[in-house]
Design a protein around this nucleic acid. Structure first.
Length: 520
RNA sequence: UGACCCGUGGUGUAAUUGGCAACACAUCUGAUUUUGGUUCAGAAGAGUCCAGGUUCGAGCCCUGGCGGGUCAA
């Protein structure tokens, strides 16, 4: 008897083709359209709301010859995705509603809502793949990146569990987008030429400030520019020693052996050459003057600069409160040449031999070192100069360029830090401003999620993975350290725009192993 | 009060020996993108503080204002 599959049919090409392929493969396919959002406030494409999508979906279902149903999940969607989003923004973090949407809605509420059809599987049109193997009598499911690098969507599914994966099919993960369109065209599916969706899934393309302002009040605050050559960046984490190639190699072998044990597929990690990559880099570390400098800075903060007083008085805020948040440990930064090379992987990059100056890690950094590498700088007003006003620090995210409305600079300004409590934004000039980059990040223990829970790390363990901290961003080599205080991810090279609230997802040779919300 | 400097699109700057104003940032639009993060392309925007003058022609020269700054004291 044919297995039964419920496919989430959105009205777009991807899910249409997914449904078609399943049908071709002999499944009994049931199409279900999710309605998750009714409100149109702040939505840009007012002429293209979901009711058009249902029509497309229904046409496709009819064409393929499968039953079509509609499920309204807007209540849980609002509660579990939208509310979360507002809450995160309010806290000054940068949520990823789409990751949540998958975890909470498409692979949870949806599965629940379609139980009545008694499906064997649930399928979606995501560009990713599922593989499985058996270990000690138990099935283990692997979430693999989709084959089309431009459309690869595994990141959005980084919070799925084995249980969810067990019931899931991804029929189009092995295809290129162009092939999907081609199939749709050949089958004359209504959605064949429909443009790709954008914006927050289900909500659509929104005008974010307007959208957020439904819930978040806008209040005026000040923007401060931190100079490129601020003494804050001069402090290098000098404790970092060199990492020898040999050390790195051992890490790789370790990973590889884990892989072997658990999957039997004996996949070696791509980056065997990474050992080489780590050579020839010297830890460009600062001199001894670190302490003195720090002290000097703290002392200096007492006599807050003139500019600030002017500014602060308009805020009606005492400047004294700033003296409290003194300089915290500073993360290392690189010298220059920070632009993300667009090479596919670290491997190729190492070929060109010119690595940006990033320091290496000692083999076993202690907790305080991990912490200091992973902690964002806390800026004070006296660290920079007033450059303008904003309408609410929680509307901005680290790395953001647009919307600051401050001009007159030689190079664009980027947000390097926000302070929602004091409602301040700190910006830096230029794409490679050191404040934009950070070497590490931290994930709370409770937020660590292992898609491959059989590969979960133990406290005290260290491993190397390729990590992504934002959708569509290149994978970067990093070491993961699991401690009692959560996980620390230390990148080989400083990362741009590490934003709390986004998900860090770690991969091993195209497989998504685990993920977690960036705590800071 | 004396001497000097400056006053150009929203902002910061530029404009060979005088020939109808350039660049950057901001802004807007579009492309890319299931997170307004990035990136990319394009567009709009001042006739150069005001009033006179010299020139065929002045942002650039002269005179006088107004405005801002610096050094003197």
């Amino acid at each position: 008897m044919a297995k039964r599959v419920v496919v989430g049919l959105s009205g777009g090409v991807d899910s249409s083709v997914a449904a078609y392929l399943l049908k071709q493969q002999g499944y009994e396919v049931i199409a279900v359209f999710m309605v998750n959002w009714h409100d149109k406030t702040g939505v840009l494409d007012a002429d293209c709301p979901w009711d058009e999508d249902v029509i497309f979906a229904e046409m496709v279902a009819r064409k393929i010859g499968i039953p079509f149903h509609v499920e309204d999940l807007s209540v849980p969607y609002k509660k579990r995705v939208i509310d979360y989003m507002f809450a995160e923004y309010e806290k000054g973090r940068t949520p990823n509603p789409d990751v949540l949407c998958n975890r909470e809605i498409k692979f949870d509420e949806f599965i629940r809502a379609t139980k009545k059809y008694a499906p064997d599987y649930v399928a979606t049109g995501h560009y990713c793949k599922k593989e499985e193997f058996e270990s000690k009598g138990r099935k283990i499911y692997r979430l693999m990146a989709g084959d089309d690098p431009a459309k690869e969507q595994s990141y959005f599914l980084c919070q799925l569990t084995q249980k969810q994966l067990a019931k899931t099919l991804f029929p189009i993960g092995h295809l290129q987008k162009s092939e999907v369109r081609k199939i749709a065209r050949e089958q004359k599916l209504a959605s064949a030429e429909k443009r790709d969706s954008q914006g927050i899934c289900f909500v659509g393309k929104v005008h974010l400030p307007e959208f957020l302002q439904q819930k978040l009040e806008s209040k005026e605050g000040n923007i401060f520019e931190i100079p490129l050559d601020s003494p804050l960046y001069r402090k290098e984490n000098k404790k970092q020693g060199e990492v020898s190639a040999g050390q790195f190699e051992s890490t790789i072998q370790r990973n590889a052996s884990i892989q072997q044990e658990n999957s039997g597929s004996a996949k070696l990690i791509e980056g065997v050459g990474s050992a080489k990559e780590f050579e020839g880099k010297r830890g460009a570390v600062g001199g001894e003057g670190e302490r003195a400098e720090e002290n000097a800075r703290d002392a200096g903060s007492a006599e807050e600069s003139e500019g600030e007083k002017v500014v602060e008085s308009t805020e009606g805020e005492g400047s004294v409160d700033d003296i409290g948040d003194t300089g915290l440990p500073k993360e290392g930064k690189n010298e220059r040449g920070l632009e993300n090379s667009k090479g596919k992987g670290a491997l190729e990059r190492s070929e060109c031999g010119k690595e940006p100056g990033s320091e290496n890690l000692p083999e076993y950094p202690d907790l305080s070192e991990l912490k200091s590498l992973s902690e964002p700088l806390r800026y004070k007003i006296s660290d920079g100069t007033y450059v303008g006003k904003h309408r609410g620090a929680h509307f901005f995210t680290i790395g953001q360029r647009k919307g600051l409305q401050v001009g007159g600079k030689k190079e664009p300004l980027f947000v390097i830090a926000t302070d929602v409590v004091k409602n301040r934004i700190f910006v830096g000039q230029g794409k490679s401003h050191p404040g934009l980059y950070r070497r590490g990040l931290h994930i709370l223990t409770d937020e660590i999620h292992w898609v491959r829970h059989d590969l979960a790390m133990q406290p005290g363990e260290k491993r190397e993975y390729m990590v992504r901290i934002r959708y569509r961003q290149d994978l970067e080599r990093a070491r993961l350290y699991l401690t009692e205080k959560g996980m620390y991810i230390i990148f080989e090279k400083p990362q741009r725009g590490v934003a709390a609230g986004q998900f860090a997802a770690w991969y091993d040779d195209g497989e998504l192993i685990g993920s977690g919300v960036i705590n800071q």
